Simulated assay, not measured.
Amino acid sequence: MERIKIVQKLTEYGIVAVIRANSKEEGVKIVDAVTKGGINAIEVTMTVPGAIDVIKELTEIYKDNAEVLIGAGTVLDPETARACILAGAKYIVSPSLNPETIKLCNRYRVAVMPGIMTVKEAIEALELGVEIVKVFPGNVFGPQIISSLKGPLPQANFMPTGGVSLDNVKDWIKAGAVAVGTGGDLTRGAKTGDYKLVTETAVKFVEAVKKARA
């Protein structure tokens, strides 16, 4: 039941903040700024130094806030997925489709969103029990890929990541995406230590998704 609830919340939120940082401390600060702006789905990528420890720390920080969902991203294999789950990750995101990673997540009833680029991969993901299929890298195709995939696969839930910005997020949602993943455009303020800008950008993303859905 927990897995179903996580999928429902991710769909309800409509935005996953993809966190890339140069240090554990910077990662925690970015997450704080993002959640202050109203984005509660957090994807800590494995490219962040000490990413597993970051997930552990964030899980502890937000243990009393059921609205904040801490997940793991850039998970390439089942071994890493299991380590993330043990650290507290509520969901796993991969840049590609790795059947063994999906099987492990299924074993522990943890939501998993593998990346796909083709209809064949999307169908394989569905056959493996994936509830939300990640389209990556989204900027290679643009929003039209969602509507194209929804043609033969209307039953699938797609979440694009890569190239999602304030300028095009409405187009992704209107094309049929149940949620979007965004990183660089959302967190660019962190590069100069301007976490207030990160919060302000998060607010704009939340508003843009709500407006697009309306």
Rank of each mutant, 00 (worst) to 15 (best):
Y13G: 11
K36H: 08
V112L: 09
V75H: 07
Y62A: 08
Q155V: 03
A202W: 08
A66P: 08
A177V: 10
V34M: 05
D171Y: 05
V198Y: 12
Y91K: 02
E12Q: 14
I4P: 01
N40I: 05
I145T: 07
V34G: 06
V140R: 11
T74V: 12
K134Q: 08
D171C: 06
M1E: 07
E26Y: 03
F205I: 00
I85V: 15
T199H: 04
G38N: 12
N40A: 06
V130T: 12
E124Q: 15
V135L: 13
R213I: 10
K210D: 11
T161Q: 02
G142N: 04
L86S: 03
I15L: 12
G14L: 05
E43R: 00
V206A: 08
L197N: 03
V34N: 09
V54Y: 01
M113L: 15
G193A: 05
L186R: 00
T80C: 09
R3M: 14
K191T: 13
A51G: 10
V16G: 08
A41W: 01
V133F: 05
Q155F: 07
V198E: 11
V110I: 15
K29G: 02
V209M: 10
M159Y: 00
T101I: 06
E67M: 06
N22V: 00
D194R: 08
G163K: 04
A179N: 07
F158L: 12
R3V: 13
